[in-house]
C-alpha cells in the first residue's frame, strides 16, 4: 500500500484476505461503513461474515489488506482489548454473557470506563454509573431481573442483555452477529426496533440470516459470497440482483 488511504468512513476494509489451511475465508474483501450508518450484511453460510467480524475486532489477523477505523487507526495492528478501547463493540452469534454474574454486574463490567486492573481493584460504583445501568436495564426491559444471575435468563433475554452490554460500552461502532437467532417473531420485531433506536446515535453493522429481520431494519444491505462483496444496495435492489438469487437459490 504505497499511499495511505484517506477516508471519512468509520470502518474501511480494503482487499482483506484471510485463509485457513488453504481455505480462503475472506478473499480481497472491500467495503466501508459511514459514520452513523446502520448496515446489514447478509450472505449464505461460509460467506465470511463471522471471519470479517473476527478481523475487525482483532481476533483474527488478516493475511493481507487494510482495515481502518475512523480513517486513521490500522486495526490489524491492535489486539482485542485495544480495539474495544477504541470504541468497537461486538455481540456474538451465540449469546455470551457472564453466566455467574448478575444482570447488573454484566452491565457494570461492560460500562464505559477505565479498564486497568489497578482502577478496577479500588473502584467504587458512582451514582452516575448506577443511573446509567438502570437506564439501560429499562431499555433492554430487564429491570425486573437485575439481581438474577445472567445464566438463568432465557435465550432472548440473554440476547438483549448482550445488546445492553453493548449500549453500556457505548462504542462508536457496533458489530452485531445474528441478533435475532433463536428468537420468537415478537422478540425479533422488538429487537429490530431496539437496533434502529441504537443506530440513531451509533454506527451499527448487523450480520443476519433472517431476511424478514433485515427488511424490518430497512437499511442498506451488503451481500457477501465466498469472502468478497457480491452486491450492495437496498434490500429490494440486491434481491433483484440475479447473482444474489443464484447464490441463494441456484445451483
Amino acid at each position: 500500500m504505497a499511499y495511505p488511504p484517506t477516508t471519512d468512513a468509520i470502518l474501511y476494509l480494503d482487499g482483506v484476505s484471510v485463509s485457513f489451511d488453504g481455505f480462503k475465508a475472506l478473499n480481497a474483501l472491500s467495503f466501508l461503513i459511514d459514520p452513523g450508518e446502520l448496515r446489514a450484511i447478509i450472505g449464505p453460510n461460509g460467506a465470511g461474515k463471522t471471519t470479517m467480524m473476527d478481523v475487525v475486532t482483532g481476533k483474527t489477523r488478516p493475511d493481507g489488506g487494510t482495515v481502518l477505523f475512523e480513517g486513521k487507526v490500522d486495526l490489524t495492528r491492535q489486539d482485542e482489548a485495544a480495539i474495544a478501547g477504541l470504541g468497537i463493540g461486538r455481540k456474538f452469534q451465540k449469546p455470551t454473557v457472564f453466566e455467574h454474574h448478575s444482570v447488573f454486574d454484566n452491565l457494570l463490567l461492560a460500562l464505559k470506563g477505565n479498564r486497568s486492573p489497578y482502577r478496577t481493584l479500588f473502584a467504587r460504583l458512582g451514582r452516575d454509573d448506577r443511573g446509567r445501568i438502570d437506564e439501560i436495564l429499562g431499555i433492554i426491559r430487564l429491570g425486573h431481573v437485575r439481581e438474577e444471575p445472567a445464566g438463568a435468563l432465557s435465550h432472548g433475554q440473554k440476547q438483549w442483555l448482550e445488546i445492553g452490554m453493548l449500549l453500556a460500552q457505548d462504542p462508536k461502532l457496533l458489530l452485531v452477529d445474528e441478533p435475532a437467532a433463536g428468537m420468537t417473531d415478537a422478540e425479533t420485531a422488538e429487537t429490530a426496533t431496539l437496533l434502529k433506536e441504537i443506530a440513531q446515535s451509533h454506527s451499527v453493522v448487523v450480520v443476519e440470516h433472517d431476511m424478514a429481520f433485515v427488511r424490518e431494519l430497512g437499511c442498506r444491505v451488503t451481500v457477501l459470497h465466498e469472502g468478497s462483496v457480491l452486491a450492495e444496495g437496498s434490500l429490494d435492489q440486491v434481491s433483484a440482483d440475479h447473482r444474489v438469487i443464484e447464490v441463494y437459490l441456484g445451483r
Partner: peptide, 10 residues
C-alpha cells in the same frame, strides 16, 4: 510443533 490451524481450534 505440528499445530492444527483454522477456525475449529479457535
Amino acid at each position: 510443533l505440528f499445530a492444527l490451524k483454522g477456525r475449529a481450534v479457535d
